[in-house]
Structures are given as C-alpha cells and as structure tokens.
Computed example of a mutant assay.
Amino acid sequence: MTVQDVRAFNRFYTNLIGALDYGRHLYAPYTLTEARVLYELAHAADTDAADLRSDLALDAGYLSRILNKFEEAGLIERAPSEKDPRRRRVSLTPGGRSAAGLLDERARESVGSLLGAVDPGERARLAEAMRTIRTILGDGHAPEGSGEVVLREPHPGDLGWIVQRNAALYAAEHGWNTDYEGLVARIVADYAEDHDPHLERTWIAEWAGRPVGCVMCVRDDAPGTARLRLLLVEPEARGLGIGDRLVTAVTEFARGVGYRELVLWTNDVLSAARRIYQRHGFVLTAEKPHRSFGKDLVGQDWRLDLHGTGE
C-alpha cells in the first residue's frame, strides 16, 4: 500500500459521506461538529468537557463555544462532577435528547439507504473490511453494544466461518498460502461429517453478537488422548482473555469425559498461542523444521497430562 492508496480511499469516502448528506439536511440546524458533540453526550453515561475535548480532539475554546450555545438553547445542563468537583459534568436535557434522537434517526435512515444498494451477500464482507480498517489503524474502542464474551456451540454457518477466518488471518498475519486453508477445510469437514458429540466438541467465542474466536477438541489416534485444534481469536478481540477461556473449555471438557492427555501441534511463529498453552500446563515434547503453507516453519508438539501436574 502507498500513500496514494490511502489518499484515494479518503477522497472516495469523503465524497460518499457528502452524498449521504445531500441537501445538507442530515445535521440541520447543527454543524457536523455540533452533531458529533450531541451524539457523544447521548451515548455517554457520565462525561465532562475535558472528556469531550479528548474524545473528539477539539480545541478547548471551540468546544466551550458549542457548549455555551447548547446551554442557551436548553439542550444541555452543567453541574459539578461527582468524580472531580474541579470539573463540570455535562448532560443532555430532555430537549437535548430529543434533538440527538432526531439526528440519530436521520443518520440511520441515510446509512440504511446506502446499505440498501449493497447486495445482501456482500454486506458481511463490507462489515469485515470496515472492522479490519479500524483494527489495523488502532481503533481501541469496543464495538457498539459490546458486552460479555459468550462461549457457545456452533450455529449453522459457523464451521464455514472457522475455515474462512483461519485462512484469511493466517494469510494476513503470517503470509501462509491456500495450503493452510485446505488443511483447515479437511479438519472441519471431518468433524462435520463424523464426530462423537460425547467425546468431541467445538466452541465459538461470541462478542457483540458475532463470532470472534474458536477452538476444537477431537479424538486423537492414540488411545485416551484428545487433540486441541484450530484455536483462533480475532485481532480486535485479543487482550480480553478469550484464548485462555477457549483453552480452559477444551481442557475441562477433555478431563470431564475421561481423556488422560491432551495434545496439540502448532508452529513456533505463533508465540501468543504458545504462551497460552504454557499457562495451562502444556509441555513442549518435540520440534521439527518443515516446509508448509509456503513458509519454512518449525512445528511443535505439546502435551498436557490431564490427571497429573502437566510436567
């Protein structure tokens, strides 16, 4: 990617946003910045001017003029902050909430019209591309409406998601070719066609209403042995402890159904996953260089004694 690529995208997106506000009715009677302030106040439980200035990267004097205008119009009220008396808490009045609600309704209608022109089959790809841009460029905010991470059984379509996300993420992060996608597809297909639900299981980690992680526990060829496979956590969901929860789910399940040991195969370049395995007591038992997925790698075998100390 070049600077010109980024600038071309910016021009396209700026023009697109301008088209959404054709006729300048979307934010009327407010400016775009004033509408942003109303939006932040409507979606913040407790905020003050300093928070707004930081979140929206606004000049202090400019923000002060906006807040004064809103206060004169009866849209906001200010009072000493309960957290810090030196600060002034800013909150919307009923009139302010009504104004913010109208702006939000217009925005939803405008974006809805835009999405209406997108083929339904392409909307998931569009959403994924948007999430990817936010993740790579450092958006640290959680998805709107995000909450607790839930581990659940796969729903229809989730097994296909496991294949697609493994292939896409490992290609993006490690440059692996489609040989890896073929391997994952075979693992998933074997599981879908012939697995014992009493001895094998798949978990999907769901956050903000969408899958962000997965792992499998399947029977190994060795008697009394289970194999952990296809541990994955989406980039924007890393740091939430999802990988640890998925590995815990596998170990507790395997121990509960009577397996004596749990094994896995990984590669040395997957350092974050290796640290998770080590925390759970897995021990490295073998290493071997190999050429796979278009790369020179070092494969690793790890083992966990489910009825011992793991050492």
Score class of each variant (00 low, 15 high):
M1G: 07
R11Y: 05
G18K: 02
A19G: 09
L20H: 05
D21C: 06
R24V: 01
R24E: 06
L26A: 05
P29C: 09
R36V: 03
V37K: 07
L38A: 04
D46T: 02
D48N: 11
S54R: 14
D55L: 07
G61K: 04
L67A: 11
I76W: 11
S81E: 13
E82H: 10
R86T: 15
P94D: 03
R97F: 10
S98W: 07
A100L: 12
L102Y: 11
L102A: 15
D104F: 10
S110W: 00
L114C: 04
L114Y: 14
A117D: 07
V118H: 10
A124C: 01
E128D: 15
T132N: 06
I133P: 01
G138E: 13
D139I: 12
E148Y: 03
P156W: 03
L159I: 01
G160I: 01
E173I: 02
G175D: 03
L183S: 05
I187D: 12
D196Q: 02
P197L: 02
E200D: 03
V212K: 02
G239W: 04
G241I: 06
R255N: 05
G258D: 15
A273P: 13
F282Q: 09
T285M: 05
E287C: 08
P289I: 11
H290Y: 07
W302M: 12
H307V: 00
